[in-house]
């Protein structure tokens, strides 16, 4: 199997695990807190989901850099300067920093959850949308709007499920 196919498959697997992990962790958190307390089983499910998410992130980062390296070695250096590539790199960095901020509680939970979800889905969309011509301003304008839209939706779900403020 050619290297570029192996790299692409790995990148897709990493994204799927990461996006799936981020989505499921949000669902599990809401479900776990719907009765006001996190049980031992729920805690275990959350830990498993975070592990899947972390594995996805590692695969995504390694395959992402493998893809950049492949582009460099095959003479497609212009890919390394595209807004799509750098937006994905920045969103991945935001995921990493957001995880730290959530851990030390320096970011409100509603914002941290939304940043995590939008960054993961943002990376997915940018990865799939190969013909995208938008620049940094366009991509990050949509990204910031999406963070607040998703935060609003999560807040509505929280209220509907009668979960106390996180």
């Amino acid at each position: 199997m050619p290297w570029d196919i192996i790299i692409r498959i790995s990148h897709v697997i990493g994204t799927v695990l990461g996006v799936g992990g981020a989505t499921m962790s949000q669902i599990f958190i809401f479900k776990a807190l719907s009765d006001g307390k996190v049980s031992k089983t729920e805690d275990q499910w959350l830990k498993i989901t975070y592990t899947v998410l972390r594995i996805g992130l590692v695969i995504l980062v390694i395959s992402g850099f493998a893809f950049l390296l492949h582009s460099r070695l095959e003479g497609f250096e212009e890919r390394l300067y595209s807004a799509r590539t750098w937006s994905k790199i920045i969103m991945t960095l935001i995921i990493l920093i957001n995880a730290v901020l959530l851990q030390v509680r320096r970011i409100p939970f509603w914002l941290g959850s939304s940043v995590s979800l939008v960054s993961w889905y943002g990376s997915l969309v940018l990865g799939v949308w190969r013909g995208l011509t938008a620049g940094y301003l366009g991509i990050f304008s949509v990204y910031i709007i999406a963070i607040f839209v998703v935060a609003f939706i999560l807040e509505k779900i929280r209220q509907r499920m009668k979960i106390s403020k996180l």
């Binding site: 950049l68 390296l69 460099r72 250096e77 212009e78 790199i89």
Partner: peptide, 16 residues
């Protein structure tokens, strides 16, 4: 480490 990694991407992309 992140800065050095990303600097590597910038350097590689300029090789054209």
């Amino acid at each position: 480490g992140v800065f050095i990694t990303l600097a590597g991407v910038i350097i590689s992309g300029a090789n054209r």
